[in-house]
């Protein structure tokens, strides 16, 4: 009886093998190769482009919802401080200005950023501007930009670097601002079980907050610690709300989803630069389109050459670092 079962199993196996062999021979080879060909990235990306109407619809809904919430909060403020107070007027102004966009990527654009480590003074103003611009929950201490202080002679080993330094700039320290690298080969996108995060055709890695299941696999997979989880309900005061929003970017998050830097998608898709670039007091950050030969980023790459962090991880980051021409002033002073 046992042998019979085995024989039957073997028979079934043989039938399956022969069947697939016949199929293999009968089907045209070209067709088979077509099937086996890896999916073209560009094709996939254009498929995402076509689906943008979904986001436009969702953005409209979100906008109405946010306006309602904002008005309620503003009314509360007005009751407390009086109708004529500065706060009340400001809150109402912001509520009126709320706009949730769903701008799609422009064709042929590939965003990248470069940071001049000789210029960076480690002031963390970029991190501050980022929090203000991107409506991060003020109660969760999430900062998309972290600035690591690394000893000049240890560079670029980030193990043992200082994240919470209190004095800057110090002469023997290199300050490395780290945020999402918008990798060409992002591990976070690969591991997401529900495709809630992906790379857009203009190079921005985005998260769909309405799809994220909060498993935090992407946080475990990111070699740059650039992803953050909303561990509780994020609180954004109305008076600090940035009304210029993008549905895949700085729209206020729901609890228990992952978020990350989006190169300020709400600004850059409309032709602007990210807030960190705008605010940097020493002009250490350069942002632009890699495909445009006249863009500042291309100029930096051609003139100085750039390197990336953890290049051995094979992620191909699009956030570059370089040592610009001028040595920082404080360093020369330190020597004298």
């Amino acid at each position: 009886m046992v042998d019979e079962t085995r024989r039957n199993l073997i028979k079934a196996g043989v039938v399956a093998v022969v069947g697939s062999a016949i199929g293999f021979i009968a089907v045209k080879r070209e067709k088979l190769m077509e099937l086996l060909k890896p999916v073209d990235k560009v094709e996939l990306l254009s498929a995402i482009d076509r689906e943008y109407s979904v986001y436009a619809e969702r953005a409209k809904k979100k906008e109405a919802e946010l306006k309602r919430w904002c008005m309620e909060e503003a009314a509360k403020l007005c009751r407390e401080r009086g109708e004529e107070s500065v706060e009340c007027v400001e809150a109402k102004r912001r509520c009126d200005a709320i706009q949730v966009k769903a701008t799609g990527p422009r064709k042929g654009v590939r965003f990248a950023m470069a940071i001049d480590l000789n210029k960076c003074i480690g002031c963390r103003r970029c991190a501050y501007a980022c929090v203000m611009e991107n409506n991060q929950g003020r109660n969760l201490n999430i900062e998309w930009i972290k600035v690591l202080g690394v000893e000049r002679k240890e560079f670029p080993e980030i193990l043992g670097s200082q994240l919470d330094y209190e004095m800057a700039p110090l002469p023997d320290t290199v300050y490395i601002p780290i945020s999402c690298m918008h990798c060409e080969n992002p591990p976070c996108v690969m591991v997401c079980p529900v495709r809630a995060t992906w790379k857009e055709s203009d190079g921005i890695v985005v998260v769909d907050y309405d799809r994220c299941i909060g498993c935090r696999y992407c946080i475990a997979a990111c070699p740059y610690g650039a992803r953050y989880f909303n561990w509780a309900k994020p609180v954004v005061p109305v008076l600090e709300l940035n009304p210029n929003m993008h549905i895949l970017g700085n729209v206020p998050r729901v609890p228990h989803v992952v978020e990350k830097c989006t190169f300020c998608i709400q600004r850059t898709r409309d032709g602007g630069v990210p807030a960190c670039v705008e605010v940097c007091p020493v002009g250490a950050r350069v942002f632009g389109d890699l495909n445009d030969p006249n863009s500042p980023i291309r100029r930096v790459i051609e003139r100085y050459g750039v390197y990336t962090l953890k290049s051995e991880a094979g992620t191909n980051p699009r956030l570059f670092y370089f040592f610009g021409p001028s040595k920082p002033v404080h360093k020369q002073e330190g020597r004298r």
Binding site: V194, C212, I213, G214, C215, N230, H256, V257
Partner: peptide, 8 residues
């Protein structure tokens, strides 16, 4: 452990 169990 998952943040948004219903979305699973």
């Amino acid at each position: 452990d998952v943040g948004r169990p219903i979305r699973t």
